[in-house]
Nucleic acid binder design. Structure first.
Length: 786
DNA sequence: TTCTTCACGCTTTTT
DNA sequence: GCGTGAAGAA
């Protein structure tokens, strides 16, 4: 992105001219307004430093000010600092804020970016060291899955039983831990098709090399390999990077940790900023351990805690802090504020999801009519399926809203198709792109014909495009497929020629029109076709912002988010808790706090205690997003995947400090059937009387339908297909019988009852003395060592 | 080859 | 409840 690359590469004389001695020192007033700890974190520039920055303690400010301070103190040129973030958004924000502090010099922060973009930049300089060319492509998940599917099928393994997705997950988890094919632990090798996973991993890596491609994990893996095997290259980066800054350190995985450690060995000047209580990406390989172990990994490291919160009212903060103390694995911080108490956090029990959406809609309307704005409100859910209800309700009420983090622009099918055409123009080696669009739009080239070409291509070791051309000449393909491939190849040839003297956005239009894609969408009368056409127009527009086709393609591969405009619109934000990190609103709604929804059922089944703690951190993140008001709610009945279920309030609700909470029943929770306890919620709202309101109160159609589906025990019928033998599946907590490996007197954890000590063992039956309930209970399942 | 039908399975998300 | 993906039918 930045053009003025490295000062390091300039002769000293030119460096001096590039930056005259009279360059104004920044006013030191950028340090003003920082508290003692923040200032300490900014000024401790040398050595290893861990900044434990709690929610709302000014983390980004410290990071950017620190960067400015290093430059201002003339400790390094901008190009000698390395700053890594996780998302493009965070990188963009850092750059913008740095620009405000140091002006144009921020342009020279050429090593500020995501782990992946920095890695890709490094890798392009040394690609030959790992057998790639410097113009390698970065493939995304979709291409990755199709590639894996081919490989697994070629190995004659049933792709239904051993899905490419599962294999992709394994490869991902290996790459997250920087595990190369020859280092896969024996135990994990058996997880896929009786140990053939390693073979597939190897073949996959080889295929990538042939395609001159990388997946996202490879960007880091290859860098690590280069550093480890080429001391001179590493030494070069050691002298280059005088200061290293890392954002969101709690989200680093093992590979990223190794990457950082290799680079930090040089000067030892590394500053990591993070918050162990906000680590919510364990499921994609993040290791909280990295932050917990920091002082061991970097001996002599200093740790600074930022505990003064500038965001939330005292009551909101008290709720969040109290909740998170239920977690065992933490470094421990005590957030405090000098803000006023504010309103207590409101906890509401509601009849069902529709009533919940109605109520929140009303709250937002009254917030708005009291002179506040929609954009000051956010609804944060655990899973994206929960968003639908709110969207429907907001549409009905005419509340403007915006869903954050919906389907990504560059992941839409039509955009990916268009991109595939461009990739084929760029390089005839792009087999994945060829497969994607030979028959898109339909040219009568079916699976059978494509397979024919693939077989020959493999034998000749040539790309599909070239092979197809040769087969055409040899008349080896007949019928519809013949003419289809013929026109496809001719078109490609023509477009390639045109690419040389036509502006690339115009070329895109020509391709889409001539290949029949536009016509195909125009003929399609479904409403989606219209939006697809508009998306393609947007793509053409976006291409105009880049100098060349290559520049555009390279950008898209790493920065998969289209910058969305009109941020200034006054809209309520609907987003997932994961999407909310780093953001804040005056008014925050946290609906859906029910057991098995939040904490999510899958998380508990698969990850046990570790996941439960992560879910709790998610709750913590949610509450701490609120500045002024926080509304938590749960329902008695919820439709999940179209099935009605009675649900229990989330355990997290009972973990809130009662003195800071205002608990209310809004819609007859107290009269809920199916033996639901009323949990002390006795108020009755107007919805209870107004069954005609349109939602599903007691005698609404929705409720009747739900009743009809219920079996005699009050639970919905479930169709449970028999488990297929051999189906890969992680061990569920619910399948784990207790007793195995547990001893008398051992401290254990139970998903429902919490911590306790085993007082008696009788086969699989354990008698456990639970700390919380203060009761002895006999339990058979859901127990694990604490 | 393409159209139709049936079964499955389904957090979270970035790069 | 909905979209995907594979097997069978035209």
């Amino acid at each position: 992105m930045s053009h003025s690359d490295d000062f390091d590469n300039l002769p000293i004389s030119q460096r001096a001219m590039a930056r005259p001695p009279s360059a104004p020192m920044l006013d030191a007033n950028y340090l003003e307004g920082l508290n003692t700890e923040q200032r300490d974190a900014v000024e401790t520039t040398d050595g290893a430093l861990l900044v434990l920055a709690g929610a709302g303690t000014g983390k980004t400010r410290v990071l950017t000010t620190r960067l400015a301070h290093i430059l201002n103190q003339r400790k390094a040129w901008a190009s000698q600092t390395l700053t890594v973030t996780f998302t493009n958004k965070a990188a963009r924000e850092m750059r913008e804020r740095a620009e405000k502090l140091i002006g144009d010099e921020a342009q020279s922060l050429s090593w500020l970016g995501t782990f992946h973009s920095v890695s890709s930049k490094i890798l392009r300089r040394h690609a030959e060291l790992v057998g790639l060319e410097s113009n390698f492509t970065v493939i995304d998940t979709d291409d990755q899955l199709r590639l894996l599917k081919q490989i697994i099928e070629a190995e004659n393994i049933d792709t239904k039983r051993w899905t490419p997705r599962f294999m992709a997950g394994l490869i991902d988890s290996w790459k997250n831990r920087a595990v190369t094919p020859d280092r896969v632990p024996a135990g994990e090798a058996h997880e896929f098709a009786n140990g053939r996973g390693i073979e597939i991993y190897k073949t996959y890596q080889n295929r990538l090399k042939v395609l001159n491609a990388c997946d996202f994990g490879d960007l880091l893996m290859h860098c690590i390999a280069i550093f480890q095997n080429n001391p001179s290259v590493l030494a070069d980066y050691h002298s280059r990077f005088k200061y290293i800054l890392v954002d969101e350190y709690q989200d680093t995985n093992v590979a990223q940790y190794l990457w950082l450690r290799l680079l930090a060995q040089g000067t030892g000047n590394i500053c990591c900023v993070g918050d162990d209580d906000q680590s919510i990406y364990g499921w994609r390989g993040a290791e909280v351990d990295n932050i917990l172990r920091f002082e061991k990994d970097f001996p002599g490291a200093k740790v600074i805690r930022l505990e003064r919160n500038y965001r939330s009212t005292a009551k909101i903060l008290a709720c969040a802090s109290h909740l998170i103390t239920s977690n065992q694995d933490r470094l421990g911080k005590t957030l405090h504020t000098e803000d006023e108490d504010g309103e207590p956090v409101k906890v509401r029990g509601i009849w069902d999801g529709e009533a919940e959406a109605r109520l929140i809609g009303e709250d937002i309307e009254s917030w708005r009519s009291s002179g506040r704005t929609y954009s000051e409100c956010a609804v944060m859910v655990r899973a994206s399926w929960q968003m639908r209800l709110f969207e429907e309700r907001f549409i009905m009420l005419g509340i403007p809203y915006k869903v954050i983090g919906g389907p990504r622009f560059f992941e839409r099918a039509e955009i990916r198709d268009a991109m595939a055409y461009l990739r084929l123009i760029r390089s005839e080696n792009d087999d994945l792109a060829f497969e994607r669009v030979v028959n898109q739009p339909k040219r009568g080239v079916g699976a059978a014909s494509i397979q024919k070409v693939q077989i020959v291509a493999r034998e000749m070791e040539r790309p599909l495009t070239v092979t197809a051309e040769i087969m055409m000449r040899g008349n080896e393909i007949r019928g519809k497929a013949q003419s289809g491939i013929r026109t496809f190849l001719n078109d490609l040839e023509r477009w390639r020629a045109q690419a040389r003297d036509i502006e690339h956005p115009r070329l895109m239009e020509i391709i889409l029109d001539e290949c029949g894609y536009t016509d195909m969408l125009k003929a399609d009368k479904t409403p989606q076709a219209q939006t697809r056409l508009e998306n393609l127009k947007e793509l053409v527009r976006a291409m105009g912002e880049f100098d060349s086709l290559n520049a555009f393609l390279e950008h898209v591969e790493l920065v998969m988010d289209a910058s969305q405009g009109n941020e200034s619109d006054d809209q309520v934000q609907i987003l997932t808790l994961h999407g909310a990190k780093g953001l804040e609103w005056p008014l925050v709604f946290l609906p859906g706090w029910e057991e098995e929804v939040f904490p999510s059922k899958r998380a508990l089944e698969e990850g046990g205690l570790k996941s439960l703690e992560e879910e709790r951190r998610l709750a913590y993140v949610g509450i701490t997003r609120a500045r002024e008001r926080c509304y938590i709610s749960f329902v008695a009945n919820r439709q999940i995947f179209g099935r009605w279920q009675s649900v229990m309030p989330s355990r997290f609700i009972d973990e809130l400090p009662p003195q800071h909470v205002d608990a209310v029943s809004e819609t007859g929770y107290s009269t809920a059937p199916d033996g639901m306890s009323n949990s002390g919620f006795n108020n009755v709202s107007r919805f209870d009387e107004e069954a005609s309101f349109g939602g599903s109160t007691y005698d609404s159609p929705g409720w009747k339908r739900a009743q009809a589906r219920r079996t005699s025990d009050g639970w919905p019928q479930k169709k449970r297909p028999p488990d297929i033998e051999g189906t890969p599946r992680k061990e569920k907590m619910s399948d784990k019988e207790s007793g195995a490996g547990l001893e008398l007197g051992q401290r254990v954890f139970h998903i429902k009852f919490g911590y306790g000590k085993i007082t008696q063992i009788d086969g699989t039956k354990l008698t456990v003395d639970f700390e919380k309930a203060g009761v002895k209970k006999v339990v058979e399942k859901f127990v694990e060592a604490a």
